[in-house]
Amino acid sequence: MTIPLDHLLSDVAAAGDAGVSLSKLTKKYVGKAGAKARTPEVEFRDRLAVLLREGAIRGPFKNGAAQLYFAADKGPTVETVAAKVVQLVLHAGVKLLSKAALRGKLKGLDKAYLADALAQAVARRAILEVACGVSQYYIHRDVAAERFNFAAEPLSMGEAREPAWRVTFEDLRPVYNRLKAEQKGFPSVKIYDLMRALGAPIDELHRLIAQEAKMGRVLINPTTSVELPREVMDAALRLPGHSEPFVTIVIEDEL
């Protein structure tokens, strides 16, 4: 018996922060190769792509051989992993945790976010990074304050937010390539789609795109006669000296 594809979103949402793998979903909705009354795989893939485009789900995130999907507000993010890291460092007290040790304490996809989470937590001054040889160790600000007997200032949201996101060209490129492949190789990818796929704040993405456009690694393009949704136009990049908003970017292979 086939299961309606309408249940796909609720299944992904039900998986919560653990996510659900593509193979599990395929098995459930498409079934085995010889099974009767299978939902055509192409329909299943199309529905998955639609949910991704609409931003209802996120993925696929590679975790070993598995490709995981999460509901839009579920799954690891830099913020959630940073919070876990801060808690781990706090609980360790004066026993310094190395980066490798922290990696060992994280599970699954959280590990992929470790570097960014550490950078964010250090930038927020929630933890302190100290070095010994080539290794980095971390100590919590409250532990240090307690030991040195000074009062730690509360973290302001402004301090916390500003460096919270740091998107790099290395982050951008694989996401761009994925979206480009999803649109059958057409190279112009909407900034709006990149923002959704990266989950990054639009200002940070604009900063990166403007910087890379200047360096020539990214080409930016205005719109055409196709009417675009308002949210797509809102995500467009506006540069001083240029009247028209830039809606899409191209990263050329040879660049």
Partner: peptide, 10 residues
Amino acid sequence: NEPNWRDDMA
């Protein structure tokens, strides 16, 4: 034009 082709024609 790429957006025309990709989004409306193809």
